[in-house]
């Protein structure tokens, strides 16, 4: 399962809920305002780091760039472009968007 989260973790609880439900081996893609959670020093960083033991975290590069956050990405988070986004969707059997 690919989980997609687009809301800031310091404004909504969608990332928190997603990480609670994401099973071992699944992937979580952070896009739009959700990318802040994958940056150093963010309040959500610890949760993201803990989650990486079981799930692979991805963040969308153009959204990081647009927010001036590209240089702050946590180690272990894979940055993908739009092409990589499409690949992730096709590689997984199902996909859930946490609106």
């Amino acid at each position: 399962m690919l989980h997609i989260v687009n809301k800031s973790a310091t404004e909504r609880n969608s990332l928190e809920s997603c990480l609670r439900m994401a099973t071992k081996g699944s992937a979580v893609l952070l896009i739009e305002d959700a990318v802040y959670a994958a940056t150093q020093g963010s309040a959500a960083a610890a949760k993201v780091q803990a989650a990486m033991a079981d799930v692979q975290i991805y963040a969308l590069g153009p959204d990081l760039d647009a927010r001036g956050m590209a240089a702050r990405v946590l180690d272990g988070v894979k940055v993908v472009d739009y092409g990589g986004f499409v690949d992730l969707v096709t590689e997984h059997n199902s996909c859930q968007s946490w609106l």
Binding site: G61, P62, D63, D65, A66, R67, G68, M69, D81
Partner: peptide, 12 residues
């Protein structure tokens, strides 16, 4: 976050 330096919004 509105005031962060070095934004590049071309990609979006």
């Amino acid at each position: 976050y509105e005031l962060i330096k070095g934004m590049n919004t071309k990609g979006i």
